[in-house]
């Protein structure tokens, strides 16, 4: 990176801590809630620090337009969008080149996990809205979409988990937030299936050595394990709340008998 960019903070790391007080290998606080959109077959709201996303899954359902229909498996459509007020400058609604590419890589990241062949001639729609953007939106989107797919009861090999690592002031750091994303040296989003450790998404923006690449991959893979537990917990919490509602219902019936 050449000179300092306009608006760049003096330092991104002060006394070994990042501007938001995190250590280099520390995630932002994450909250995940499954089943937030009653209309959807599966859904999830997820926050990673100030980054907020909502994902909804509709399907497997009839495939429209018909010519997308596949005889031996399902067709997936994945649409990532940013709501107009999610960014510093208003984001023009509708698809952009950036969102078109991100939609594509999210789909490529999710598909290895889904048993698409179990749902021939159907379509699975994955819609993701970024409601507040503060870096890491594509990885947050993948984490939310994976939970939404599981929440929809779609059969999967595993829950896909994603996180980005980057480089700030020459040091490898986990889960960049906005100032680090804007003024750091590199950003590498990664998604994987934690059970088999197979990597389903890898991108890189910025200059790194091969050793740094290895360090970043390892750092991300470790963090994915943490996020994976939160994703599973979100699903369990949702089913636990459904089950207790059922039990209560049965209780009423029994009571009336």
């Amino acid at each position: 990176m050449g000179g300092k960019k306009a608006g760049s903070p003096d330092k991104l790391i002060v006394n070994g801590k990042r501007l938001d007080g995190r250590k280099l290998d520390e995630l932002r606080p994450i909250t995940i809630k499954a089943g937030v959109i009653p209309n959807a077959d599966g859904s999830c709201a997820l926050t990673m620090g100030e980054t907020r996303v909502v994902a909804a899954v509709y399907g497997p359902r009839e495939c429209f337009p018909k010519h997308f229909q596949l005889q031996d498996r399902a067709y997936m459509e994945c649409i990532y969008t940013m709501v107009a007020f999610s960014t510093t400058d208003r984001a023009r609604p509708g698809p952009s080149r950036r969102s078109t590419e991100i939609s594509k890589v999210i789909k490529d990241a999710l598909l290895p996990a889904v048993f698409m062949e179990k749902y021939p001639r159907t379509k699975i729609d994955v819609y993701i809205e970024v409601t507040n953007a503060n870096a890491g939106t594509r990885t947050a989107a993948i984490n939310a979409a994976a939970v939404a797919l599981a929440d929809a009861g779609i059969e999967m090999r595993d829950i896909v988990t994603a996180i980005a690592s980057g480089k700030i002031e020459g040091q490898v750091a986990l889960d960049l937030f906005e100032p680090e994303d804007n003024f750091g040296e590199a950003d590498m989003p990664l998604a994987m299936m934690p059970k088999t450790k197979e990597i389903t998404l890898l991108q890189l923006d910025g200059e790194i050595t091969r050793e740094e690449a290895e360090q970043m991959i390892e750092m991300s893979m470790k963090a994915c394990e943490e996020i994976y537990e939160l994703q599973k917990k979100a699903l369990k919490d949702k089913y636990a709340s459904e089950k207790s509602a059922e039990v209560e219902g049965e209780g009423d019936e029994n009571g009336s008998v």
Partner: peptide, 27 residues
């Protein structure tokens, strides 16, 4: 780049890679 630095990457398609495969590919 000529000095061996990696500057951009893109994974595409619906399969997966292992970490070892990736490190081999970088070289």
């Amino acid at each position: 780049l000529a000095d061996g630095k990696l500057v951009a990457m893109q994974k595409g398609g619906q399969g997966t890679f292992t970490k070892e495969e990736l490190l081999n590919i970088f070289d």
